Amino acid sequence: MELRQLIYFDTVVREGGFTRAAQHLHIAQPAISAQIKLLETELGVALLDRTTRPPALTHAGELFRLRVRRILDHVDAARTEMTELADLVRGTLRIGATPVLGPIDLIAVMATFRSAHPGVTLSYRSGLLDPLVADLDDGRLDLVIGPEHPGLATGHHLEHLADEHFVLALPPGHPLTACARVDFTQTRDELFVCLPPASGMHTLLHETAAQAGFTPRVDFVADTPATVRAFVAAGLGIAVMAASTTTTPGPLITTRPILTPPHHPPITLITAKHPLAPAIRAFADQLKAALTTPEAAP
């Protein structure tokens, strides 16, 4: 049984006869008739009643037609998917990401993706989540990677990538390093370093401090977690930081668990709700594949 025989058979039925099927397929009528005859011989049943005009389906032909239609639908779907994959060899993928990405090595993922799809031009921009999501909504970015927040779920498609948690970052030798776990009330008289007021981290710090009964004194506002870490290492303050940002190479700091830590939202792939373009889907798959490897585990 050959695929072309199934196509010929289906076309004869849809077009209402051998002549119109031959015209539709641009194939000589005897060739179509011969192939369907071979198909019937192989199956051991007659599929078409050739005594009628146009040929009518036999009972076996009716049953067989249902199976053929399913097969051809699968073939069409496979052909569409392969065409979409072929489209990955060209185009642009615009990526936005926040500085906090948990265990995700985004640069390594981008390098692997570009090696696999050299025809796709990658662009990348880092920043705070809200401006990045605004650019996603306006079509200036194709995807955003960053912490989830409640307002995203209604207008975007979210895919969980990794979990994250907070720790207290301290200068080496700070008195609180003597604690196995720090109660946030113990930080009441400390100076804090934090990200800008527009960041989720700034809001979270003030909410956590309020629950502990005080307002934090933030003397230094830094634009990135790396800069926050540099201020802490220099002894200019302490900070609540995502754990992943304290384990990468950088200035020496000490970290301690927080007794009742604030919740860190999961790291999420954020895209528009409409069906994903092939390049976006492939990049998402690359991200998740990287996170399943031992090297990428938190």
Rank of each mutant, 00 (worst) to 15 (best):
T208M: 02
P275T: 11
A277T: 15
H174S: 03
A222R: 13
G235I: 08
D87I: 05
H149F: 04
E2N: 15
L101K: 09
R181Q: 12
K273H: 11
A169E: 03
A31T: 15
P261F: 08
P216D: 02
I280M: 04
A134P: 00
A297N: 10
G127I: 12
T260D: 08
A56R: 15
A290N: 08
M201R: 14
R281H: 14
L6D: 03
T112V: 10
A153W: 07
L259H: 10
P266G: 08
F231G: 03
D138C: 04
A284K: 07
T11R: 04
T11Y: 00
D189S: 13
R67S: 14
T187N: 02
T92Y: 00
T92C: 05
E295D: 13
V167G: 01
V75L: 11
R256N: 05
L143Q: 08
L276E: 13
I238F: 03
A226L: 05
A180Y: 03
S33L: 06
I238L: 09
D137A: 14
L136N: 06
V193P: 02
P261Y: 09
L47I: 08
R67C: 04
D189H: 14
V221F: 03
A296P: 00
L129S: 09
L269Q: 06
L57I: 13
L85C: 07
A243Y: 12
Y8P: 01
H156L: 04
L161P: 01
A116G: 02
T247E: 07
D285R: 09
A234Q: 09
T98L: 02
T260S: 07
A210H: 07
